[in-house]
Design a protein around this nucleic acid. Sequence first.
DNA 1: TTCAACCACTT
DNA 2: ACCCTTGGTTGAA
Length: 711
Amino acid sequence: MAQITGWLIDLYPNETGLALWLLGEDDERHKLHIDFPVTLYAAGAFQSLRQAWRFLQSKNVSLARETRRDLFSGERAVLAVTVHTPAALPGLFAELSGEFPALDYYDADIPLPLRFAARTGISLLGRCRLDLTDNRVAAIEALDDPWQLDAAQLPLRVLELSPEVDPSFRPPRQVRVQYGNADYSLEIEPFRAFEIAIASILRRFDPDLILTDYGDTWLLPMLTLNPNRDPDRQVLTRKAESYFSYGQVVHRGGQVHLFGRWHIDRKNAMLFNEYGLEGVLEQARVSGLGVQEMARKSPGAGITAMQMLTALQTGVLVPAVKQQAESAKTLAELVQADKGGMIYQPLTGLHENVAQIDFASMYPSIIVNFNISPETAGNTLVATEGGVSKGGLIPQTLRPLLEKRLALKRWISELDPRDCRVKTLKPRSAALKWLLVVCFGYLGYKNARFGRIESHEAVTGISRELLLQAKEVAEAMGFLVLHMYIDCLFVQKPGCKAAPDFAPLLSAIEKQTGIPIALEGVYRWVAFLSSRRDARIPVPNRYFGVFADGEIKYRGIELRRHDTPPWVAKTQLAILQCLARAKTLEQARDFLPQTQAIVEKAKRDLRAGRVPPEELVVSQRLSRAVEDYKSPPPAARAARQWLEAGKSVAPGQVMRFVYTCGHPDVWAVGCGELDGRMVDMGRYLKLLNRAVGSILDIFAPFSSEKPKMLI
DNA sequence: TTCAACCACTT
DNA sequence: ACCCTTGGTTGAA
């Protein structure tokens, strides 16, 4: 009997049970085995269950009758079907549900790492100690848990591979290779030599993680060698797909998953830019899903996994979802979901010494504090008055997540901003934030396993109530409330200029609402913009301002939009930065001539052809197939060129293009070279003027060239 | 030129 | 489920 300590990095079914990969503290990577029978449940009419029992008797399964708890309908008599190898479960479920479609199925499509975590207390990335007989696990003990803030870091070996150019533009010639202290480029041709070099790195360096650009869609599919650590397995490929999520069509490229080590394609990973590898590892850790899964799926998959784990741990059945395309949330539904929050009309114009106060993680806090869960909806107040109840399924799932995020934020605020730990703590906090945000959305998602629209509405209802309470508190203390938006307030009071001046208000609001609240900052000045169509109508989420420390914050303006060309965005930012040097509004007005100079210089650069084409690139997402457009937008016209060049496009893909004169009126990036003389200057000047106007008009409302149209 | 239809983005 | 954003372009009338 041997004992071994390390981190669990991979887990998947094999012929007899589960294969486990341990990153040992001895710096070895161990492939281990464990028996792992799994059970699914069926419930329904007695006759059908009896027929199912007979049907299953000829299979290699164990059958039993049990009583288990459905979250909504309570105790249920179920048929428990246990298979001895988890690899057999998906096939059996498909066969059974095909034969008996009227039965309700539970625990039939739970990711294996979650079952493993529920049974052993050890989730992926967790540190553990194992007793081994040969390579079989005899006993297993957890040494940490996902909620620990400062768990020991995994000593991962990372290999980075990235081509010098986007392969959809032209075939790359080289791949940059980085691992350990090595950093060099490999020629792709001759290909045999390239592959031999890669194979040798895999053998000698033996990375735990292969981090690539375009690895899913280009590099790994091209290789003939087996990039797995487990030589007995072939790579797992998943097809590319376009799907609808949060009001948008999203395109996800094909994927290459590895066994025994991980592959993440940065260019094909959801939100990777948002929180990076640190964030992905954090999400994988708390969700219990594998790293490769988490990197490529939305945080929604992560929060669903966490809910399933809570269900498994508390003896609640997990309803199986029929394999169907995720039904889309329409934009209207999305807007409605957003409108559930409080939206106030700001007092448009320029204001000085304004504090922005944010409720921290407002919706998740409401869910936890008011015990909002599908099975408790309508019963929330009773549950909270009862005092210490452990709460419904959703609050139980969220509480540790919320507490961990708050603790991380507290830790960050205590550290010196230059402390190197801040660099890893911030993305971890951001990654948790996404899980929390999405959890609220999933409460109202009709295909969520544990969702219910009433609980969704309860959350937004309470949020509006709390915000109104906050407003009343502020006004009672003599503050003017300039604006409120979902989970934040903008307040002003003569004589209040610095953070401490607002501290009494913060504690009063927190005391009243019970939700943690924080001062986002005090603006030296802030501008709330009005609608461009009608100057009398305020727009709730179009504003910009400068905090006391000089930091600029902006929402809703061109700079925030992904489809604004960099040249326009940079000029708009330069203007803001120029104005931000002013300590007061009056001073800001003195900077207006300088901002004009910035704009004039930008225009001269454009006219003289000094703006490089990549600064003029517009990026827009295709919401449908090119042929399905009735009036093709520029992105679709660019996509047409793309198709003519023999490349492919899919809905959800982002097209990058430059506006040109004549026909065609766009030039798609990646389709040959752009003739600099072709750039549609007029169009870009218009875009620039608009962006400049967003900032400057409010400073000189009576001197703008064109009077505002009043409808 | 006007106007309705269409489209993308926002968190 | 009910309401339904803004800021823009396209193309027919």
